[in-house]
Amino acid sequence: MEHTQGAETVIAAEVEITGTLKTSGSVQFNGTLNGDLIAEGSATIGKGATVKGNLEVDSVAISGTIEGNVTAKDRIQMLASAQVQGDIKAKRLTVEDGVTFVGRSEVNPSGEPVKAATTSSEAAPVSGGVPPKNSELGEGKGSSLFNKK
């Protein structure tokens, strides 16, 4: 059989795999995976699919459940039924209304260094609006909307 690079592997809903799933092409995963998924191409995690492990892919569209970290070279797409518990990292991200996502996200399409890494007390004033620091404002005298901790 001729080896075709970039071909899509389809794994059906009734398949359960324990271990690392690795492909040089793309994969459409609808089953249960207890382990990592590594794909040089794109991955599609179907609606009923469950992955308990990390994903390392070029791009991924998630409709199922992932308990693990997702790292994509290009793009992560979280569709409405997606449930992700873990950290994500990608160049581009789209999230549809309805997703469950508990974790950290590092998506920076502009490629500029992330200011979030600085602590709030060290944060430099941003351009545009320059809100004074709490020390200047006096703490705890704000509106009822805010619960200063």
Binding site: L93, V95, G98, G103, S105, V107
Partner: peptide, 16 residues
């Protein structure tokens, strides 16, 4: 609820 359009940046700790 969270919606992110393609091109938007998200550097957050999230609980959605």
């Amino acid at each position: 609820h969270l919606i992110v359009e393609e091109g938007g940046g998200l550097n957050c700790a999230l609980d959605v």
